[in-house]
Amino acid sequence: MRASLVVAVLALAGLLGPPGRAADGRRSDAEAMSPALRAMQQDDAANPGMLSVLDGEALWSAKAGGAGRSCADCHGDATVSMKGVAARHPAWDAGRGSAVDLAGRIALCRTERQDAAPLPPESPDRLALTTYVAHQSRGMPIAPPDDSGLRETRARGRTLFTTRIGQLNLSCATCHDDLAGRRLGGTPIPQGHPVGYPLYRLEWQATGSLQRRLRNCMTGVRAEPYPFDAPELVALEAYLMERAAGLAMETPAVRP
């Protein structure tokens, strides 16, 4: 609530540029892509990530598990009930006393509310449901909630972001704060804003999660990646969302 108020005030004060770009220089990594890739992302008929959205839409109203209930049975029309939900995840789960990201929240509803088999990380159904739900926030500004628990989580994420890791001894911040816009080998280093996840990556030939991307960057510096759903990855996600506050969601984005 408060975060979206802050965003509204920033927008009024003219501090936010066009969607995808903030007046302070933060910008979506889509802006550095080739015109062809940007066109692919913007055209729903050409964007391969839309296949996950369609799969997710079908799963949304499919009854599953011991409860025999669909997501829609409890949440109704996703285009209404899920609007803005991705823009404020990870969120604080007071019952668990931990931060939960969007895919984690969906996986919890799957096991606890539907009484169905768990959705493993990066499984097609989990990606499809997450992409479908996140798509309902497309165009909306990222608005991290202001929870004391989340504040601690983000602080932990920030520490992880700025700690040098791996055999190459580099931190996320080295590349994404200090060297963004420069070239690592042939590849431009993006600012690393998580605006479009889950997204379709040409290199993967698939839709993938933000956690998959973070694990790729860790392997890139020859560090041991945290396992999927590890609290460290959720903390990094929470920090990245705060760092990207106000930028517009793009799910499903397309990236090289």
């Binding site: 700690t163 040098r164 890791i165 791996g166 055999q167 190459l168 001894n169 580099l170 080295t174 060297l179 860790m218 392997t219 020859r222 560090a223 041991e224 990646p225």
Partner: peptide, 24 residues
């Protein structure tokens, strides 16, 4: 410096299994 120390294997954090305990 951001340039890795190619001959050292100490002072590093969370080095991946395949690269552990050997210099670059």
């Amino acid at each position: 410096t951001i340039m890795p120390s190619y001959g050292r294997r100490d002072g590093l954090v969370r080095v991946g299994e395949a690269w552990r305990n050997r210099p670059i």
